[in-house]
């Protein structure tokens, strides 16, 4: 059986917000180390991988590996019934077809209980090779959100170029072109810092609508990492205290 007690429903809500527009159904793979989810969007262009560590829960018990097939729209509805600071317990029996969610109010005696149907999901799991990336850019997640949102007003694609100068995001639209250069900052310790580690110059083009989707994870984590090598998928990584959310996005290539 699974019993996982989270300090705050808000963490789950934010996670769901960050994946629900990419993926409709997904298996939450539970084992003694924690909960993992890996799912591709319908068009097989983007993949999201989530990990929640067992140690990050107030209490965590999972006797044997079990997949929980979840419709994310349904889970979003059930989570809307929780206050952000409710203590939240997820429970499922072995071979169960329901997930039980209990919300305990922090400062009152309210206890709410919901049961959600689970489903069988055949998912295509991809083996992601360990990759040495040629460039790693670390920046405030809010800045990343802003730049992809701004440029998505102009065009469909963005070229991300990493050089010693900094990282440049450029988009060409029918009515307007735009480019944003973010220079490396001197103080690595500053939470607003932009750091660039680079073996070679990298230039890749991506669909902005996916990046705008990924950037919703900014609510989970103040920093984001972009990992890039020429001609391989981009990795956008948000590491928060209790785990991570990582997105992979296939590059576009010129005709």
């Amino acid at each position: 059986m699974l019993e996982a007690k989270l300090a705050e429903a808000g963490t789950l809500k934010k996670l769901l917000d960050a994946i629900k527009e990419l993926v409709t159904d997904a298996n939450f793979e539970c084992n003694e180390e924690g909960i993992n989810l890996q799912a591709m969007d319908n068009s097989h262009v983007a993949l999201v991988a989530v990990h929640l560590e067992a140690a990050g829960f107030k209490r965590y018990r999972c006797d044997r590996p079990m997949p929980l097939g979840v419709n994310l729209t349904s889970l979003t509805k059930v989570l809307k019934c929780a206050k952000d600071d409710d203590i939240t317990t997820l429970k499922a029996a072995d071979e169960a077809d329901v997930l039980n969610l209990v919300y305990e109010a922090k400062n009152s005696d309210r206890i709410a209980e919901y049961d959600m149907k689970l489903m069988d999901i055949d998912s295509d799991t991809l083996g992601i090779p360990d990759t040495e990336y040629d460039a790693r850019v670390t920046m405030p997640s809010a800045e990343f959100t802003r730049v992809v949102r701004d440029l998505s007003q102009l065009g469909e694609s963005v070229r991300i170029e990493v050089s010693k100068e900094g990282v440049r995001f450029a988009s060409e639209g029918e009515a307007a072109n735009g480019s944003v250069l973010m220079k490396q900052t001197d103080d690595d310790e500053d939470t607003q810092a932009i750091t660039i580690e680079m073996n070679q110059h990298v230039s890749l083009t991506f669909s902005l609508k996916y990046l705008v989707n990924f950037s919703k994870s900014a609510s989970l984590c103040p920093r984001v990492q972009l990992m890039m090598s020429n001609d391989v998928p981009l990795l956008v990584a948000y590491d928060f205290g209790q785990g991570y959310i990582r997105y992979y996005l296939a590059p576009k290539i010129g005709d």
Partner: peptide, 14 residues
């Protein structure tokens, strides 16, 4: 102008 690659072109299916 651009062709969109798929992830399955890069990562192997398990």
């Amino acid at each position: 102008k651009f062709k969109q690659n798929k992830l399955t072109d890069f990562f192997r299916q398990k």
